[in-house]
Amino acid sequence: MDGPDIGWYLIVAALLFGIGALGVMMRRSPLIVLLSTEIMLNAANLTLIAFARQQGDLDGQIFALAVMAVAAAEVAIGLGLIVAMARRRIVLDVDQASALRG
């Protein structure tokens, strides 16, 4: 294969996953948190595809394709929730969003 080893792709994927995880844990805006989960899923996809190339096996690509669809579904529901909360005039802050404390 031309170019970098699979390992390089995996490093990129791992860094991306970490960045996404950090975003989910540290950010307060639900929109950005949702975007961060997308980054995590994409990192996982990159890993799957890299391994598919490594193995010469298409299962990984199929998996990644399914994940894309699922991620889109998750985003749709997440955005629906955010819009619904905005319409109900609920403060958009995942940490403070809470009558649910105690």
């Binding site: 989910v24 639900p30 948190v33 989960t37 995590m40 529901i77 997440g78 929730l81 909360m85 969003a97």
Partner: peptide
Amino acid sequence: ATSLEAGLKYLIVGGF
């Protein structure tokens, strides 16, 4: 409000 908040929280943590 609590129901929507719970849904969002579940979605985010579940997505993670």
